[in-house]
């Protein structure tokens, strides 16, 4: 049950973070959404053995975390929690791809390890970009941006509705589970049958609620279309944010900064 509460708290906490007033939070959500997408595409477009080229991309999450006053430790924990799938698929690389790719003095590093490291770096970068987007923008604003960028209104409304009722229904599920665990002793009553009754109950309540909401909507003139009144203005700073970061990503994509730096250093050192 701790997991329900903690995942609710998680959504709530990310939402709270998005209420802050920093230069990052004030940007138009479209600018942030598009920049995030360019970033992710730039990162995953690298070859599978790329490591050094990916490192400079760290600047994006680092800078945004700093400017947006976001908690790095919390985000790091969230990234770790999401890691298992990429990790378990990636960990096969070192087992299967054992040709030595990098020779560091006596130590030969196999291609598998290099590509595994690359996967984990990509994972960290892409996941942190998505989390930063939501922590600095909030879901409602992301939905608004999606709609303005041409996503079907039906889908955007669905996202908003879903998000609105996650809290209500999770609370209901939590109460049901509490009632179950208070009366189940030595693990009895946690089995399949009781589980399906719980889910069935929750589903019936959900359907009844949907009906009541529909009545409330119709009472206020709902005719099948949801209208949103929220002006979005794309300012100069939004354009600068988007174009600035995007060109940096392109630059870093084609120009390997760490190599140049390394050459400079090793060239200078005797």
């Amino acid at each position: 049950m701790a997991t329900i509460e903690s995942s609710l708290l998680n959504i709530g906490y990310l939402e709270t973070l998005s209420y802050q007033q920093t230069p990052l939070h004030r940007l138009d959500p479209r600018a942030k959404l598009l920049t995030t997408l360019v970033f992710i595409i730039a990162v995953v477009s690298f070859g599978k053995y790329e490591i050094t080229g990916l490192i400079p991309f760290m600047i994006y999450p680092v800078a945004l975390i700093a400017v947006g006053n976001l908690p790095p430790g919390y985000l790091a924990r969230k990234i770790l929690l999401a890691a298992p799938f990429a990790f378990f698929i990636g960990i096969f690389n070192p087992l299967l791809d054992r040709a030595v790719l990098v020779q560091l003095g006596p130590v030969g590093l196999s291609g598998g390890w290099v590509s595994f490291a690359s996967i984990m770096i990509r994972f960290t970068l892409t996941v942190s970009a998505a989390l930063i987007l939501i922590a600095s923008t909030g879901l409602n604003a992301v939905c608004l941006a999606l709609e303005r960028l041409g996503a079907p209104t039906g889908f955007v409304v669905q996202l908003l509705f879903l998000y609105r009722y996650i809290f209500v229904l999770t609370d209901e599920a939590l109460r049901l589970m509490r009632a179950r665990s208070l009366r189940s002793f030595q693990g009895r009553g946690l089995g399949f049958k009781v589980f399906t009754y719980l889910i069935g109950q929750l589903l019936l309540r959900t359907l009844a609620r949907a009906q009541r909401i529909h009545l409330a909507m119709r009472s206020r003139g709902f005719d099948g279309t949801i209208r949103l009144l929220r002006p979005l203005e794309f300012h100069l700073q939004d354009a600068v944010f988007f174009l600035g970061w995007s060109s940096l990503f392109l630059l870093l994509r084609w120009y390997n900064l760490p190599h140049q730096l390394g050459h400079l250093l090793t060239g200078l050192a005797p």
Binding site: N140, I213, G221, R227, L229, R230
Partner: peptide, 26 residues
């Protein structure tokens, strides 16, 4: 104007503002 028993059924929009604007916009 109908005020329902459970405000969670009535307040379905993402923000308070949107919810209060829902009727007038319709």
């Amino acid at each position: 104007g109908m005020v329902f028993q459970d405000p969670d059924d009535q307040l379905f929009m993402p923000r308070v503002y949107d919810d209060v604007a829902f009727g007038p916009l319709n």
